[in-house]
Design a protein around this nucleic acid. Structure first.
Lengths: 233, 233
DNA sequence: CGTTACCTTGAATCTCCTCAATACACGTGG
DNA sequence: CCACGTGTATTGAGGAGATTCAAGGTAACG
């Protein structure tokens, strides 16, 4: 419930609306497909707990990971705006979802302009994340790409309190990282070993440790672009 | 004025609002920067005439072209939602812009839920275009990437009536294409020559001719994802 | 204790990049 | 009208980075 509100305070009527907007909860197994590209679902979700993956599958068998979905993330907005989903979403762990009705979204736009604004904001933030990924995949080498995507995930998880002792427990595999940054699994592995060798991070089965955050940022050749949301007045 | 409405019919009150929402027109020279990354503008625009480029510049001098802006496109929504632009926008030709006030956007959300919905829709469509670009840059080779980006531009321009006799007059350079698809200028050129040699397209100074659309689609290894907007009820 | 998913490493190959040089088109000023 | 500068396109050569193929190794799980 608080998931959506991670970036601002709700007003009481908004909270009421969101509360009755909620249709229930759904729990899916690890590995299950939450949305299939091309499908048309009557629901949208917010992720309450667990990890998920947004991706596009090609006929060749190749996969482009678009982003990771974390608690608080809205999933399936596209199936509201378009007549079908344009990417798939898969659970990486057992996942708990909050279910909303697609129908009642019209009401949201008519009665709660603040929440409508938030939806535009969410869509636009997703866009800017993809823009950043695209910039890395298009313009940087494997080492910088992997350093970046690890930074990106760590940073988001840090804000959610999922990072303890600079350690993040995550179901992400090297295959996932490679598919996100347009690298083969072999090159991903070799580059990840190089990255570990610098002492910036440690890669473990089921976890990532950041040993030297400054070095990681440097290796990612990261140019900070801090943004603040502009609140709805 | 009709630019924004390219995808649906406006209701009379919405039309009224948009009409008085407009603050005037702005004309900029070819090469001028419309938005600079990191800046904070009190205006947003729609492109009425001409070509523009959305891109991110890196300190290293490399550039990632995110997308091309065409007549009807909204420019600068990010400066409303965030406290700054996260990419730059540059005019490729002399450009005519319709200027709107950022302030009055709140009004739009409060009084015209249909238009608010449209803004979310626009943001989400931009996201899905970036997802498709990312998929190409991440998963396909130079030939498919270039075939794709040319298809993409031609398709959008076709809908705007800018393509006559399968020919598009465009200010896009090989450098632009390369920066969009993450390829060096040299490799872009060589691959473009190969693409021309197949007979699929013809590359001219200031123009692209599609000689064999089916072949171009095949070379792009394109998997069609037709979408319809879901109208606001 | 065997199966499965994930990680690791070496070798050969190829795509794509950088460097370098040249050609072509267009506009400007002498 | 021609010389010149500038932005764009073209081509060759050499090399770095990434891919594919192939073969193991390791941890988790029933």
């Amino acid at each position: 419930m608080r998931a959506l509100s991670s970036f601002r305070e709700f007003k009481p009527p908004e909270l009421d609306f969101v509360q009755q907007f909620k249709m229930g909860e759904l729990v899916v197994d690890a590995g299950a497909t939450i949305f299939l590209e091309g499908s048309d679902s009557p629901h949208i979700y917010t992720l309450l707990e667990g990890w998920a993956l947004r991706y596009r599958m090609l006929e060749s068998g190749r996969r482009q990971v678009l982003n990771f979905a974390l608690p608080g993330d809205l999933i399936g907005l596209q199936s509201v705006l378009f007549d079908k989903m344009l990417h798939s979403v898969q659970a990486l762990t057992p996942v708990r979802l909050c279910v909303f009705s697609r129908q009642r979204l019209w009401e949201l736009y008519e009665r709660h302009s603040g929440l409508a604004y938030d939806l535009t904001w969410i869509a636009s933030r997703e866009e800017s994340i993809l823009a950043e990924h695209l910039t890395y995949v298009g313009q940087r080498n494997a080492l910088a790409r992997l350093a970046y995507i690890i930074m990106h995930v760590m940073e988001r998880c840090r804000k959610l309190g999922l990072v303890v002792n600079d350690t993040l427990a995550t179901p992400i595999t090297q295959q996932d990282l490679g598919d996100a940054m347009g690298l083969s699994i072999v090159h991903t592995n070799k580059t990840l070993r190089r990255l570990t060798a610098t002492g910036a991070i440690e890669w473990r089965r089921g976890g990532i440790v950041v040993r030297n955050a400054a070095e990681l940022t440097r290796l990612a050749d990261y140019e900070k672009r801090e943004t603040q949301p502009r609140p709805f007045i």
